[in-house]
Amino acid sequence: MPEDASPLTGGCGCGAVRYAVSGAPRWAAACHCRDCRHATGAPYSVYAGFERAQVNWSGEAPRRFQSSPGAERCFCGRCGTPLAYEGARWPDEVHLLVTTLDDPGALPPRGHVYVGQKLPWVRLADGLPRYRTTAGEGGPMTEDE
């Protein structure tokens, strides 16, 4: 993970919405929950959690959609690219979709969350820790789970 002061940059597919983040994220994880699958159209999505003050949006402001009570998804109003998750559960964080970074390889996931909702045909063989919900809600799952 980048630890230097160089900002990471990213944005939507058409370039209308851009962002820059300074400093390292609090975490980076692959999320397997149903809501993230619906929001991104992918079997799982990799997010990085940043303090709200670390994220600076530029260009057009992202559009927002309340995907469930207390949860908003941010996306480009022009091209529809999903960009971020913000929720009441983590009020001081912005969860950016790592694949929207200009260099998504800069923030590899450190684990898998909401594995209890993982699609049955997804196989996790990367050796990263797996959590039934989140790391804060219990220890890693065992290989037998």
Rank of each mutant, 00 (worst) to 15 (best):
P62F: 00
G127Y: 01
G127H: 02
A42L: 14
N56F: 11
H112R: 04
T142W: 01
C12I: 04
A88Q: 13
R37S: 01
P2M: 15
S45Q: 12
D126L: 03
G10T: 06
L124G: 04
M1Q: 13
A71G: 12
G41E: 08
Y47F: 15
L83K: 01
C36K: 03
Y19R: 04
R52M: 07
G49T: 06
A28K: 07
A106K: 09
V115R: 00
D126A: 04
F65R: 08
G10P: 00
L101D: 10
P62M: 05
Y114H: 12
A39V: 00
Y19I: 06
P109V: 05
A42V: 01
A88F: 01
A88H: 08
M141E: 15
A61F: 07
Y19H: 09
R52S: 15
L124N: 02
Y85Q: 12
T40W: 00
Y114T: 01
L83D: 01
R78Y: 09
A16N: 03
E93F: 02
F50T: 07
Q54N: 11
H95L: 13
L101S: 07
C12L: 09
G13P: 00
R63S: 15
R132K: 13
M141R: 01
D92I: 06
P104S: 08
P69N: 10
W90A: 08
S58W: 06
D35Q: 14
A61L: 10
P2F: 14
W27A: 07
G116Q: 03
C36A: 08
H112K: 02
C74V: 08
P104I: 00
C14D: 13
D126M: 07
G80R: 03
R26S: 11
S68L: 07
L128A: 02
P120Q: 07
E72P: 10
E143A: 15
K118S: 04
A48I: 09
P62G: 12
T133P: 02
L124F: 05
C12A: 06
G138A: 10
A29W: 01
Q54A: 13
T81H: 11
S67P: 08
T134H: 00
E86G: 11
V122T: 06
W121Q: 09
P108T: 07
G15H: 05
G49H: 07
T133C: 11
A5H: 12
E86T: 14
R110S: 12
Q54E: 09
V122S: 05
G111E: 04
V98D: 06
G136I: 08
E51M: 06
A16M: 05
L128T: 04
P91E: 06
Y114Q: 08
E60R: 14
G49C: 04
R34D: 15
D92R: 14
Y131F: 13
G11N: 11
R78P: 07
G11Y: 05
G41T: 06
Y85L: 13
P69E: 08
A125V: 11
D92Q: 14
T99P: 05
M1R: 14
E143D: 15
A29P: 01
G59T: 11
G77D: 03
R64C: 10
R110G: 14
W57F: 15
Y19K: 01
